[in-house]
Amino acid sequence: MSQYKNETTRIYTGPAMIAKGLVSRLNDLGISPIERNDNESSIQAGFTIGVPGQVMLYIRNDELPKAQQTIDAYLKEIGE
Score class of each variant (00 low, 15 high):
1 M>C: 05
1 M>W: 02
1 M>Y: 02
1 M>I: 08
2 S>F: 12
2 S>G: 09
2 S>A: 02
3 Q>G: 10
4 Y>V: 01
5 K>L: 00
6 N>I: 02
7 E>Y: 11
8 T>I: 13
11 I>C: 01
12 Y>M: 03
12 Y>H: 03
13 T>W: 02
14 G>P: 01
14 G>Y: 00
15 P>T: 04
15 P>S: 07
16 A>P: 01
17 M>E: 14
17 M>N: 06
18 I>M: 10
18 I>Y: 06
18 I>T: 09
19 A>M: 11
19 A>V: 01
20 K>D: 15
21 G>M: 12
22 L>C: 01
22 L>N: 00
23 V>C: 07
23 V>G: 01
23 V>M: 12
24 S>I: 09
25 R>V: 06
26 L>P: 00
26 L>A: 02
27 N>F: 00
27 N>W: 02
28 D>M: 11
28 D>N: 11
28 D>V: 11
29 L>R: 13
30 G>V: 11
30 G>L: 14
31 I>K: 12
31 I>F: 10
35 E>C: 06
36 R>H: 02
37 N>P: 00
39 N>M: 08
40 E>F: 03
40 E>M: 10
41 S>L: 12
42 S>N: 05
42 S>M: 05
42 S>E: 08
44 Q>G: 09
45 A>Q: 15
46 G>A: 14
47 F>Q: 07
48 T>H: 10
49 I>R: 10
51 V>L: 08
51 V>R: 13
52 P>T: 12
52 P>M: 13
52 P>I: 15
53 G>P: 13
53 G>C: 14
53 G>D: 13
53 G>S: 15
53 G>V: 10
54 Q>V: 10
55 V>L: 04
55 V>E: 01
56 M>D: 11
56 M>W: 06
56 M>I: 05
57 L>D: 01
57 L>R: 00
57 L>Y: 04
58 Y>W: 14
58 Y>H: 11
58 Y>Q: 14
59 I>C: 04
60 R>K: 04
61 N>W: 01
61 N>A: 04
62 D>G: 04
63 E>W: 04
63 E>R: 05
64 L>A: 10
64 L>V: 10
65 P>Q: 05
65 P>R: 03
66 K>T: 06
66 K>F: 01
66 K>G: 06
66 K>D: 04
67 A>L: 02
68 Q>W: 09
68 Q>G: 06
69 Q>H: 13
69 Q>F: 09
69 Q>L: 11
70 T>I: 08
70 T>N: 05
70 T>L: 05
71 I>L: 07
72 D>C: 09
72 D>N: 09
72 D>L: 12
72 D>Q: 12
74 Y>D: 09
74 Y>I: 05
74 Y>G: 07
74 Y>S: 08
74 Y>M: 07
74 Y>Q: 04
75 L>R: 15
75 L>V: 14
75 L>F: 03
76 K>I: 11
79 G>P: 08
80 E>V: 03
80 E>D: 11
80 E>Y: 15
80 E>M: 14
80 E>T: 03
